[in-house]
Design a protein around this nucleic acid. Structure first.
Lengths: 218, 218
DNA sequence: CCCATTTTTTAGATAAGCCTAAAAATATTT
DNA sequence: AAATATTTTTAGGCTTATCTAAAAAATGGG
């Protein structure tokens, strides 16, 4: 059985390498874990000995197949618990991360799947992130980022890339939430800002914000 | 914030002292924690320094008021989660202890009370144990043990004193569960066994079993 | 009431996960 | 390509919670 620290490393290494699957530097992992490089080295060596990461001294690390499988189960648990907290206990999407961070480490062979069934097999968590299924596979309709749309194109907001507290609070403030129908009204070339409509209201968002929003074509 | 080990000690000291509130020996605490007396001594000293137990060298320990308050919140969380697992996720009452053992340590100022509300403020967990309310107080109608009833008296099974795996499995086997209406048909003075009826069926249980069953008078 | 037994505490060790400081390896600049 | 800067690893320490072994205190039988 893995410690919580080990599980957290696997999860964050997964998050960092998800897109590229390139070797990750010790420093980048340390930064993500909010710890020192020396601590990250210690842990990478331990995880390497357990066959959960492929690690070469001074070169970097990536998850092994076995490590990735475990990382996916943790991501699955995290996202299912977030869904539970929002859907069943009435939390807002910007309040659930820290609690799910703890709940994702509960060990039980049956709990995760019973929770999944209780929630009626959700495919995305409250932030729109896909929930790996029982086999650790992600199966969801693909999404595009809002920043890739052109003027007059529209779609439904299905997720956010960065689910940080600050970003979610910003979306709350401008009254944008998952499920909104969003249409691009104008793109300002000068600063790459987007003017969009969501339902009746009309707002302007920065290019960075537009890159953080996932849209599903209708 | 307390470590899980500290919380577990408080909870088990509470469980041991609940009835008598006498001084507890280091050995009895060590046994309950499945650890060595020297480890228990270490922890009692630490908890004493934090003002959570009253502890005198070589004499024994009991919870302080502050320690008892914390113990009650952990008991509350444990019993609410057990209720969740049985009521919402469909577990049997003999399957939930180990999971609740982990869930009781989740830290959140709001989670416990939201869970309580979601479960519609249960007063007893699946084993019939009372659930402390938001103020840490236990408010339930009193119960008596089955062994104290006389022939021809009857009542409803509302709880078990010992919720050990073996005992719960035994009750499952003889098909007795919470809510059953139980009537004493006969008490055998020779071995103090009880012949009881529950609904239509009629069974004989030992005196020890009868001491483990809580009954509410109708 | 004293001596043997039991209980409890202390002392010192271990493992996990973190730290700082120093050394080693790699990368960058000129 | 050498010197400098950065990154990474190693070495040694700290804390928590555990352990074993030994010392100290309490208990109880004769």
């Amino acid at each position: 059985m893995l410690s919580q620290a080990e599980e957290n490393y696997l999860k964050e290494i997964y998050a960092l390498g998800e897109e590229t699957h390139e070797l990750l530097s010790t420093n980048s992992i340390a930064k993500k874990m909010k710890t020192k490089a020396s601590s990250a080295t210690d842990m990478l060596q331990k995880l390497s000995n357990k066959g959960l990461v492929d690690y070469t001294k001074y070169k970097g690390a990536r998850l092994s197949r076995k490590g990735e499988t475990i990382a996916m189960t943790i991501v699955r648990k995290h996202r299912l618990w977030e869904t539970f907290l929002v859907e069943k206990l009435g939390y807002n999407w910007d309040e659930v991360h820290d609690i799910a961070e703890q709940l994702e480490h509960i060990q039980s062979k049956t709990l995760t799947n019973r929770l999944d069934a209780f929630l009626e097999y959700p495919t995305r968590d409250p932030h729109g992130h896909p929930i790996p299924n029982i086999n650790g596979k992600i199966v969801t309709s693909e999404s595009i980022i809002l920043a890739d749309l052109n003027i007059n194109e529209e779609g439904i907001l299905i997720g956010v890339k960065d689910a940080s507290d600050n970003f979610l609070k910003y979306l709350n403030k401008i009254n944008i939430t998952i499920g909104d129908n969003i249409k691009i009204l104008d793109i300002e070339p000068f600063d790459n800002s987007f003017t969009i409509s969501s339902d009746t209201k009309q707002i302007t968002i920065s290019g960075n914000v537009a890159k953080n929003l996932y849209i599903k074509n209708q």
